[in-house]
Amino acid sequence: THFTSQQLQELEATFQRNHYPDMSTREEIAVWTNLTEARVRVWFKNRRAKWR
Rank of each mutant, 00 (worst) to 15 (best):
R48C: 01
L11Q: 00
F44G: 00
K50R: 13
P21T: 02
A13L: 10
T1G: 13
D22E: 04
K45H: 10
Y20I: 02
A38Q: 11
R52W: 10
L11K: 00
V42F: 11
E27S: 10
F44E: 00
L35K: 05
T36F: 04
F15S: 00
Q7V: 08
W32Q: 15
R48N: 04
M23A: 09
T25P: 00
T4S: 09
W32H: 14
T14E: 14
V31Q: 13
T36R: 02
F15D: 00
L8C: 08
L8K: 07
V42H: 12
E37H: 04
L35C: 07
W51S: 06
V42N: 12
T33C: 11
R39A: 15
H2V: 11
L35N: 05
N34Y: 06
R17T: 09
W51V: 07
S24I: 11
I29E: 01
V42S: 12
V31A: 14
R26N: 02
T1S: 10
R47K: 05
I29H: 00
A30L: 02
E12M: 03
V31C: 14
M23E: 08
Q9F: 11
Q7T: 06
V31D: 08
I29L: 12
K50T: 08
M23L: 14
T33H: 07
R47F: 03
F3E: 03
W51I: 07
Q9E: 11
Q7G: 02
R47C: 04
R17S: 08
Y20F: 12
K45A: 10
R47I: 02
T1Q: 11
T14F: 15
T14P: 01
Y20V: 04
E28R: 13
W43S: 01
T14D: 04
T1A: 12
R39N: 10
W51M: 10
E12T: 02
N18P: 00
N34C: 08
T14K: 09
Q16W: 11
T33Y: 09
N46H: 12
R52P: 05
N34G: 15
N46L: 13
E37G: 03
I29F: 03
K50H: 08
F3Y: 12
V31W: 08
S5M: 12
E27G: 06
F44S: 00
W43K: 01
P21H: 02
T4F: 04
R48E: 03
Q7L: 06
A38Y: 14
R52H: 11
V40R: 01
E12N: 05
E12P: 00
W51H: 13
T1V: 12
E37C: 05
H19N: 06
V40L: 03
K50S: 08
A38K: 13
E12H: 03
V31L: 14
T25K: 09
F3A: 03
R39Q: 15
L11S: 01
E10Y: 15
F3D: 02
W43F: 02
F3S: 03
V42C: 14
W51L: 10
Q16F: 07
R26L: 09
W43R: 01
T36I: 05
T1K: 13
W51C: 11
S24V: 12
L8S: 06
T33M: 14
H19I: 05
L8A: 06
T4H: 04
R41L: 07
T25W: 06
W51R: 05
M23V: 09
A13S: 11
W32I: 15
Q6M: 10
L11N: 01
T25L: 11
A49N: 08
F3V: 06
R47G: 02
A49L: 09
Q7E: 04
W32M: 15
R17D: 07
V42Q: 14
E37F: 04
R47H: 02
V31M: 13
T36G: 04
H2I: 10
R39I: 15
V40P: 00
T25Y: 08
T36Y: 03
T25M: 13
F44H: 00
E28Y: 09
A38M: 13
E28K: 14
R52C: 10
E10S: 13
S5V: 13
A30N: 01
K50A: 13
H2R: 14
T36E: 06
T14I: 15
F15N: 01
T14Q: 15
T33I: 13
R26P: 02
S24M: 10
M23N: 06
L11C: 03
T14H: 15
Q6H: 11
S5T: 12
L11E: 01
P21M: 03
H2K: 13
F3G: 01
E12R: 02
W32N: 15
A49S: 07
K45N: 07
T25H: 07
F44T: 00
E37R: 03
N34M: 08
A49C: 07
T4K: 04
E37W: 04
W51N: 07
H19D: 02
F15C: 04
Q9C: 14
H19G: 04
T4Y: 05
I29W: 02
T33K: 01
E27L: 14
Q6A: 12
R39V: 15
Q6S: 10
R26F: 07
R48I: 06
T1H: 12
Y20N: 06
W32S: 15
L11Y: 01
R39Y: 09
E27V: 13
Q7S: 04
E10M: 15
R26S: 02
F15V: 02
Q6G: 08
E10D: 12
A49H: 09
P21C: 06
Q16A: 10
N46M: 14
N18G: 05
H19W: 06
L35H: 04
T25A: 11
T33L: 15
T36V: 04
E28I: 12
R39C: 13
A13E: 10
H2G: 13
A13R: 13
Q6C: 11
S5F: 13
K50W: 08
T33G: 04
E27D: 06
T36H: 04
T25D: 08
L8E: 10
Q16G: 07
M23F: 14
W32R: 15
R26T: 05
V31R: 15
W43E: 01
S24F: 10
A30M: 03
R48L: 07
R47W: 04
T14M: 15
L11F: 02
V31E: 13
P21N: 01
Q16S: 09
Q9M: 14
L35V: 07
E12F: 04
T14G: 10
K45V: 11
R48F: 04
A38S: 11
E10G: 08
T36W: 04
E37Q: 06
E10Q: 15
R17V: 10
L11D: 02
W51T: 06
E28V: 10
H2L: 10
R52A: 09
H2W: 12
N34Q: 10
D22Q: 05
R52N: 09
E28F: 09
E27K: 15
R48Y: 04
T25S: 08
L11G: 01
I29G: 01
L35T: 13
Q6R: 11
E12Y: 04
L35F: 03
R52Q: 10
T25G: 05
R52F: 12
T1C: 14
W43N: 00
S5W: 14
N46G: 07
F15G: 03
W43C: 01
F15K: 01
R17Q: 10
V40A: 00
H19E: 03
N18D: 07
K50D: 08
E27I: 15
I29T: 02
F15E: 00
R26H: 01
V40F: 01
R17H: 09
R52M: 10
E12A: 01
W51Y: 09
K45Q: 11
W43Q: 00
